[in-house]
């Protein structure tokens, strides 16, 4: 019962972070700000949801697998967002309009 409530609270908090991240993705002005919103919020959002699910896991191995999924998602997200930011930086520095401003 207490575990179920803890899961609900953690998962709901995770969803709030996802909503905040999505809002940032839709509303922020440029690539870097949008990435900032997405990666910060998604990692924490996914982390909270994973933590909530760990409490429901049947055994230690299941719990470890959920944590592993979270870690992999963090590594992939960190790598990909770095690549996106770098590519946006390269594009900006090579476009004449951005160089003038």
């Amino acid at each position: 019962m207490i575990l179920d409530i803890a899961t609900l609270v953690l998962a709901s908090a995770g969803v709030v972070f996802f909503i905040a991240g999505t809002l940032g993705l839709l509303r922020f002005p440029d690539v870097y700000a949008r990435l900032h919103a997405l990666t910060k919020a998604d990692n924490l959002g996914l982390g909270l949801i994973a933590l909530g699910l760990v409490l429901q896991a049947g055994n230690v191995w299941q719990a470890l697998k959920i944590v592993l999924v979270w870690l992999l998602a963090i590594f992939a997200a960190a790598t990909v967002s770095q690549l996106i930011a770098r590519s946006a930086l390269v594009q900006r520095s090579s476009s004449p309009a951005a160089r003038d401003s």
Binding site: L68, L72, A78, Q82, L83
Partner: peptide, 14 residues
């Protein structure tokens, strides 16, 4: 020494 290179060395193990 970039992030992608690190990821490329880290991912195969798992």
């Amino acid at each position: 020494d970039g992030v992608l290179a690190t990821f490329g060395r880290l991912l195969p193990a798992l």
